[in-house]
């Protein structure tokens, strides 16, 4: 067994913390911020939504659905981007000033 083969499964299992913020309606369910362990190679926003809802429990089902946009590194997005530990992630409901 090569060294590379030994390391690869461990690397895939490695986790790293990701800080996630919530603004608007999602904050009612998740609070203002949470820290979640994600795969060190990152994951998609869709997978992150699912992971957060699962961790929070049944009350969170659908709370981060497609109506909830994300902020990734200060850009609001509805796309299913790949995110990594260390990035600044937030989930937000509709914005409204005035």
């Amino acid at each position: 067994m090569s060294l590379q083969t030994d390391i690869e499964p461990a690397r895939k299992l490695a986790k790293a913390p990701l800080k996630v913020s919530f603004f608007g309606r999602p904050s009612d369910v998740f609070g203002k911020t949470t820290i979640v362990d994600i795969p060190s190679e990152g994951l998609t926003l869709g997978a992150l939504r699912q992971l957060l809802e699962e961790i929070r429990g049944p009350e969170a089902a659908g709370a981060l659905g497609s109506h909830v946009r994300a902020i990734v590194n200060d850009e609001i997005t509805g796309a299913d981007l790949h995110v990594k530990p260390g990035q600044d992630i937030a989930f937000i409901s509709a914005v409204s000033g005035g």
């Binding site: 608007g24 409901s93 509709a94 914005v95 409204s96 000033g97």
Partner: peptide, 21 residues
């Protein structure tokens, strides 16, 4: 009203309500 980045809610005796566009 629709694009400024605020999250606004009304608070009163009957509880709170998010205000969206």
């Amino acid at each position: 009203k629709t694009e400024a980045v605020f999250w606004k809610r009304e608070i009163g005796p009957s509880g709170t309500r998010w205000v969206e566009p």
